[in-house]
Amino acid sequence: MFDNMHAALVRLRHNKAFEFFVIAVIIISALEIGAKTYDLSDTALSITHYLDVFITVFFLIEILIRFIAEEKKRDFFKSAWNVFDTAVVVISLIPINESEMALLARLIRIFRVLRMISIVPELRVLINSLMVALPRLGYVVLLMFIIFYIYAAIGSFLFNDINPVLWGNIAISMLTLFRVMTFEDWTDIQYETMDVYPMSWLFYMTFIFFTAFAFLNMVIGIVVGVMEEEHSKERNQGQPSLADIQAQIAQLSAQLERMQGADSATHHTEGANQQKNLDTSKDAKQPK
């Protein structure tokens, strides 16, 4: 009976309709959280309350289905996404009415929207790619910080008297340069300094070239490369490795040899029986 229930839960877990229904509930959960930020009538608040109870109970049932359908229960918590989903569901069970942890419980309910990532494989690939790319991006970010620091120091020394609000110290100068890098009204800053230093446009042009063009393209290139690697891993997960193929070939060859040996033994036994029958018939025909 347990095996039948386990098989049914496995089929339900991998059922596309069930996955789409889970995604729909997550979307409804996101809309319900957004609706609570408005001034709602008593009727609407009552509806959102019962809807929140339904979503919480459904997520609990869904996580139990995934846990029971897992072949090896220990492997369920080896996945970081499963741990995250379980933590969100468990903390969502905390009652939020007049509780000291009401704020925490409400915040955790907001994170239920992130469960969309664990359900949709494409989103998981994107997040995994970003996490894998972070160590490689560290050196690019460090180099970008060095460029920011150098240009901020130069800008603070040269333009402090022009506009201390933007260039008063190195920290404020770095914020101003971030504004320049994101092209947020950066021409106003440039023209202000060009009234005093006409060649200051070189300062901005070289900074934008290094940061907005060179380094950001390096970041994009690293992320895209890691995404390609992750997509290749996803495609190759379902394909057998070379060692598995060789093992299967060796197993089939051994089975074929055993079958051929069994056939040879059968033919030899049949031939011996036929010969024995012939000898018996000859002996029976000879006169005594």
Rank of each mutant, 00 (worst) to 15 (best):
L123H: 08
R115W: 02
P240E: 00
G238A: 12
A171G: 14
L166K: 03
L9E: 02
A171M: 13
M144N: 06
Y204K: 04
Q251S: 15
G155S: 02
E257D: 15
M101C: 10
I222E: 01
S156F: 03
F21R: 05
S232C: 07
F67V: 12
I170R: 02
E71P: 09
K72G: 10
D85Q: 07
P198E: 00
N236W: 04
I154D: 01
V226C: 01
G225A: 12
S264C: 08
G221Y: 05
A265F: 08
F84R: 01
A243P: 06
N97R: 12
A171F: 14
R136P: 05
T176L: 00
M199K: 11
A7E: 13
V83P: 04
F59W: 04
L216Y: 09
F207E: 00
L64V: 15
N169D: 15
M218N: 06
D52H: 11
H49Y: 13
M181N: 08
N217H: 10
T266V: 12
T56G: 06
S156P: 06
F54M: 07
Q190G: 10
L45T: 14
D52A: 12
I220Y: 06
S232L: 11
R112T: 13
A214E: 04
A171T: 15
L278W: 11
Q246R: 14
I127Q: 00
A69E: 01
R74A: 14
R11C: 08
I146Y: 05
D161L: 04
N217W: 04
T86E: 00
M259C: 12
A214I: 12
F76T: 10
D39K: 06
S232Y: 08
T266P: 03
A272Q: 13
T56P: 02
Q237S: 09
F76D: 03
